[in-house]
Amino acid sequence: MSVEQTATMAPRVYGVAAEFQSPAELLEAVRKLRQRGYQRLDALTPFPVHGLDEALGLRRSPLGWAALAAGLTGASGALLLQWWTGAVAYPLVVGGKPYFAWQPSVPVTFELAVLLASFAAVLGMLALNGLPRFYHPASNHKRYPRVSDDGFLLIVENDGPAFDAARAAEALRAVGGQHVEVLED
C-alpha cells in the first residue's frame, strides 16, 4: 500500500473536543486557547452563552439584511399584486371607489412584508447554519448528549495540515477541559 492510499483511508480528524462544567469555565478556556493561537474554535452549549460570540471572535449575524430584503420584496410584491389585479387585470367598480389607492392597500402590503421577512429569518437561519444536517462529527463525543442538557463542549477544529491533534488535546487539558476526545469525520 502506498503512502497516499493510507492517508486517504485514515479517517479525517475533524477536531478535538473537551467538556467544561460551566459557562464561565468555557469562556475562560476559549480566551486562553485563542491567546495560544487556536483560532478555529467552536463551542456546543445548551443555551446561548452571553459573551461567547465575542470570545470566539464571531461577527454579528447578517440575518437582518436577509429579512429586510425579503420584507421589501413582500411589500412591493403585494402593492404590485393589488394594483395589477384591481386596476389592470380586473377593474371593477365597488362603491365608487378608485381601482387602486394606497390607503386600502396598506394591510395586505404589511402582512405580506411580515410573512416574507419571517420566512427569510427562519429559513435564512437554517441555511447559514447548514441545517438540517443529521450527522456531525461532534456527535461522536461520548459526552455529546449532555450538550443539550447541562454540558459545555469546546472543540478545537482541524484548521489545516499544520493541525496537531495531540497538541490540541494537551492544550484543552491545560485549560481545564475534561473528557478530551479526538473527533473523526
Partner: peptide, 14 residues
Amino acid sequence: GWRGSARHWRHYEM
C-alpha cells in the same frame, strides 16, 4: 440536527 454550536446560536438569536 440542532447541536447548539456557538456559531448556530448567533444566527438563532438574531
